[in-house]
Simulated assay, not measured.
Amino acid sequence: MDLHLKDKVVVISGAAGKFGSIGETILMRLVDEGAIPAIIDRNERGAVYAEEIRNKGVDAHFCQTDVTDPEQVENAMNEISKKYGRIDVVLNNVGVNDGVGLEASYEEFMNSLKLNMVSYFLIVKHALPYLKKSKGNILNIGSKVALTGQGRTSGYAASKGGVLALTREWAVDLVTYGIRSNAIIIAESWTPSYDTWIKTLPDGDKKLKSIVEKIPLENRMTSPEEIANVCLFTISDRSSHTTGQFIFVDGGYVHLDRALLTEN
């Protein structure tokens, strides 16, 4: 299916993760569709990705940016808009499950909010004039932690709850401009970061097995490719009458009856 994303300027944050991360996978799927990715990330790996993309014959731009710094975000959006003259999509993909719990300091909690939620606000705020012109759309990457809790991660949980609230607020606030706003909610997905975390546990293999067994559909983790495919469809005009939605790409992890997990 042609998603009509060719030459669409897509601002994507958090896309300079390691190969196989959710952000990197979404980025490369955008390239497959001929979209023009404008990468916002603090990791200089983004410059390498942008060069690789340009070598494939697709334009790309990288702005090395600390998304918790309002001035840096504003400068990045000005740079992108000056280069392309338009922004068609904002895809907010920043997220670090940083373990900032109730024992953390006020400063640590606020820093978690700034990274995991406030960065979304800043990017949309400075992209908004261009989204209005293009009647573009916003897609926020969320987490099941916003709905289920996890324990010992108050900052991340509060942030991702806020991201869902902002998704609905923006859908209402911007509906008169024809701007759509949606969120993708992820549960358990096998990424380099997940692999690193599992390897830090003394009983990592046992823990991984217990997690996978709790995913109803096929008892397996969601792949980054599956997440990326839903993202691309949602930002495309093939999803032109979908707004204010929380779209779960989680193998039924959040909603399906736990009875499904009972061993025979």
Rank of each mutant, 00 (worst) to 15 (best):
G99A: 12
G95C: 02
M117T: 04
V96F: 10
Y120W: 12
N78R: 15
S81M: 01
L91T: 04
P70M: 12
Y120I: 11
S81T: 06
E108Y: 00
L102I: 13
M117N: 09
G95V: 02
V94T: 05
G101Y: 08
I87Y: 06
N75I: 04
V96T: 13
V100P: 08
G99Q: 11
E79Q: 14
L115Y: 04
Q72E: 14
S105I: 02
G85Y: 10
D88P: 07
I87V: 15
G95I: 05
Q72T: 08
S119P: 09
L91Y: 01
E79T: 14
V89E: 06
V96Y: 07
Y84E: 05
S112T: 10
V118Y: 14
Y106T: 12
A76S: 15
Y84F: 15
E108I: 02
N78S: 14
V73T: 10
L91Q: 01
D88Q: 07
S112W: 06
L113D: 06
V96G: 05
V73S: 06
D98W: 05
G99C: 11
V118E: 14
P70R: 08
L102G: 15
F121P: 00
L115I: 02
E108A: 11
Q72S: 11
L113N: 02
L115C: 03
N116A: 08
E103G: 12
S119Y: 10
R86S: 13
S112Q: 06
N116W: 03
E71R: 13
I87H: 04
G101L: 11
N75R: 13
N97L: 13
F121Q: 07
M110H: 10
P70Y: 11
V100D: 07
E103V: 08
L113V: 09
F121I: 11
L115A: 04
E71T: 14
F109R: 03
V118S: 08
V94K: 03
S105R: 08
A76N: 02
R86A: 13
N92S: 08
L91K: 03
I80K: 00
V100M: 06
A76E: 03
I87W: 04
S105Y: 03
G99L: 09
R86W: 07
N97I: 11
N97R: 13
L113A: 03
N97H: 14
N116P: 00
V89A: 04
K82W: 01
V96A: 12
E71F: 14
Y84C: 01
R86F: 05
N97E: 13
N97T: 12
G101D: 15
K82D: 07
Y84A: 00
G99N: 14
V73I: 12
N92M: 03
E108R: 05
L102W: 09
K83W: 06
D88N: 12
F121D: 04
V94Y: 03
N93P: 00
M77R: 01
Y120C: 08
M117L: 15
F121C: 00
K82T: 09
L115T: 01
D88I: 03
K114Y: 13
Y106A: 10
L115P: 05
G85E: 10
E79G: 14
F109C: 01
V94M: 05
A76W: 05
K83A: 09
M77L: 15
P70W: 09
F121A: 10
G85F: 10
Y120P: 03
V89H: 01
M77T: 04
G85A: 09
D98N: 15
N111W: 02
K82Y: 06
R86E: 11
V94E: 05
G85H: 09
N93D: 03
V100Q: 07
V96K: 10
